[in-house]
Amino acid sequence: MGAYVIRRLLWLPVILVIVSFSTFALARYGPGDPVSVAAGQVRDPVVLAQIRADRGFDLPITTQYYRWLTKAVRGDFGESFIQRGYSVSELLFPRMWISAQLGFVALLIVFAVGIPLGLLAARLAGTWLDPAIIGTLLFLQAVPVLVVIPPLVWLFAVQLHWLPAGGWGGIFSIWWIADVIAIPIPDPHLYIPLVAFTLPGFVGVARLVRVTALEVNTEDYVRTARAKGLAESTVQFRHVLPNSLLPLVTVVGFALSGIIEGALFVETLLGINGIGRFTFQAVTSRDYDVILASTVIFSAVFVLCNLAAELAYGWVDPRIRVGASHS
């Protein structure tokens, strides 16, 4: 198992080199460059050429890539073109953190709501309520985020003035009782993005849990448990629930890597300063170093989360031996 983990981790740099070089080449060979985007309407061709030369844009692509790589392995992801004087790390990580906070809370809610709904649907299999629950969730998933947000903003911000129309204030606001006791309450900026974020997510978790729960319900040990005369609630919680959650471990792995990538539409429509909106802007303005760094970081996180999910799966279910075929 240890050897397996090391073998998998040794692949990580190889994957990252492939990903980064492809991204690098795509960006460099694509039309336009950040120098001309950042120049503005008063443009001097001589100065533009000098800036390009300074940045090494006139060198062969392999040399440019090698230069980038030698810096990147030391943690220096370069400097932004569009936000002059700021290093890529300074720009990326705070935004990633914002997206991750939102993503974490959304993930929690998706699981907290999705799992019971899935179990419920499985329990109600055969009645009209099962398709009703799953159908409703499917409908919610089918409504694009772009469509969900404007009516929510119109109602809760413009009409009722209960919530801010956009922006970000962290996860918690602090409520002071007589200026002495601080009580963290969910920040009002959080509600609309969370609703937009979670509504389409429930269905995936709920359906997965439903399917496995239906399967588990027909297992011998569940029948045995019922035959022993255990209460139905005990059967559900002790025997059905834990076994139905097994496939969710994989889902958590994928979802964890997804949350740091942010959500372009939610962030753009609600003006949340997250990583999704930022990387999109970086692509349109050809901010090479930002594009590259975000791609590499996303890939690394994706690989690591998958590995973690794989290991967790083996650990949770001893029938699965991670790396078995190799050892």
Partner: peptide
């Protein structure tokens, strides 16, 4: 610098 539609805000 953050926030959605300016008119809504």
């Amino acid at each position: 610098l953050a926030g959605g539609s300016a008119l809504t805000r």
